[in-house]
Design a protein around this nucleic acid. Structure first.
Lengths: 121, 121
DNA sequence: ACGTATTACGACATTCCGTCGTAGGGAGAC
DNA sequence: GTCTCCCTACGACGGAATGTCGTAATACGT
């Protein structure tokens, strides 16, 4: 329940649209009255944390997310599971409740995926 | 990727064992060389955040978790889902990968739960 | 050589969290 | 009543994460 890094999240959401972004690109997308260097700093910190990668493009850097949005979010869920010390049934039930609430149709997709996975393995 | 409130987590884990706990009780459980007031403060902050509830018992308070561990963790997953703007298939796949890695048998339980849910609704 | 864009680095405020100390109040022991 | 304990309330301090910039240095095109 720690505070959510709002600006970092918005920057990541931008990168998750795909492709390589210069600081100026990201700035144009989320720089809402902010200073250019603010975006540069956020990108820099994200890079230091390994959340984004970058390659030189002339003088400037071009950034892209290290992991896709789905991978990143699933990893967060994974950390929750870890804290739960296994996916107990009550947790799974509560999880399904959450999924149903956010996106009811996802339950069908989930079931289909589970069946497919079982067939594969 | 925000920081983990380590002590708060340990205190919550204690309360999640069930029942009502005085500060001294919790202190005996997790007060690992810490000061008594440290535990009191953590409990107080948890209460301010609505994570725990408390009732007077003579001079002292007795604390208990507002939500069960499963509810709390599922709520965290819910927040992730919210950020995902719906449970897309790639996210579900990544999620299943996580579950499998943490607790392979959970996939079977999940499938059974889904079937049961479908029968119910 | 000049002006422009970009980065590197550091700085400052705020908030969260871990960690205590102290003051003050109530309840039982004498 | 007075003393002694235990408990709470409140505030304080330091470190880390974040949002937010400013400035200095640096490279590039003309």
């Amino acid at each position: 329940m720690a505070r959510e890094p709002e600006l970092e999240r918005r920057v990541l959401d931008t990168l998750w649209q795909g492709g390589d972004w210069s600081v100026r690109d990201v700035y144009a997308e989320v720089g809402d009255g902010l200073a250019y260097t603010t975006i540069a700093t956020v990108l820099d910190r994200l890079h230091a944390k390994g959340r984004v990668e970058r390659a030189k493009d002339g003088v400037a850097w071009r950034y892209h997310a290290t992991r896709t949005k789905e991978e990143a979010l699933a990893a967060e869920v994974g950390r929750v599971l870890q804290r739960a010390e296994g996916a107990s049934e009550p947790l799974l039930v509560a999880f399904l409740d959450e999924v149903e609430q956010v996106d009811p149709a996802a339950l069908d997709r989930l079931e289909a995926l589970l069946r497919a996975r079982r067939g594969r393995s």
